[in-house]
Amino acid sequence: MEDELIVELYWKRSENAISESRTKYGRYCGAIADNILHSREDTEECLNDTWMRAWEAMPPNRPNRLSVFLGKITRNLAIDRYRKRNAEKRSKGQVDLCLDELAECVGTEETLDDDIALKEALNSFLEQLDQPAKELFMLRYWYMFPIKEAAKRCKLTEGAAKMSLKRTRDRLRLWLEQEELL
């Protein structure tokens, strides 16, 4: 079913919106959740929460890209679930690895306090980034694919992907410094 029709079902308050979303984007959102949670059960629960959040969000929202709209919800829910689940234990999941890598970029201080400015800076940074580097960066830090998986999707070796990600992180740090956010 076309995305527009699925969104229309949400607006008509038809519960088929959820089943159609699950059918079309269950695997997509499941991949995002699984990258973060590494648990079939948690992933399933996260997906159920995703459909309910989508139900609450449409209306008033009418997303242009339903996949990304649902993916964002899944990502946020999965991270939230991950943080609660791992609050008292060390973990070696992709979230921790991504955080370690981003710590090289922005540190672990608590100085990034302007959410709106940070979001604008990130958007402008991504805007000027060349497409291959941006795609790899987002596969790693938005979808949180393992580096090896992200590299394959970009047709790079793992080593080349690591190098590209490091360069992008370095450029991001400079960008945030220029924006006086760091």
């Binding site: 964002k72 991270i79 970029c105 540190g107 201080e109 990034l112 959410d115 991504l126 987002m138």
Partner: peptide
């Protein structure tokens, strides 16, 4: 919230 955590979360809100 730590900078790296804030960055990871805010990346999730970037433009589609």
């Amino acid at each position: 919230m730590k900078n790296n955590e804030k960055l990871l979360l805010t990346l999730g809100e970037t433009e589609d």
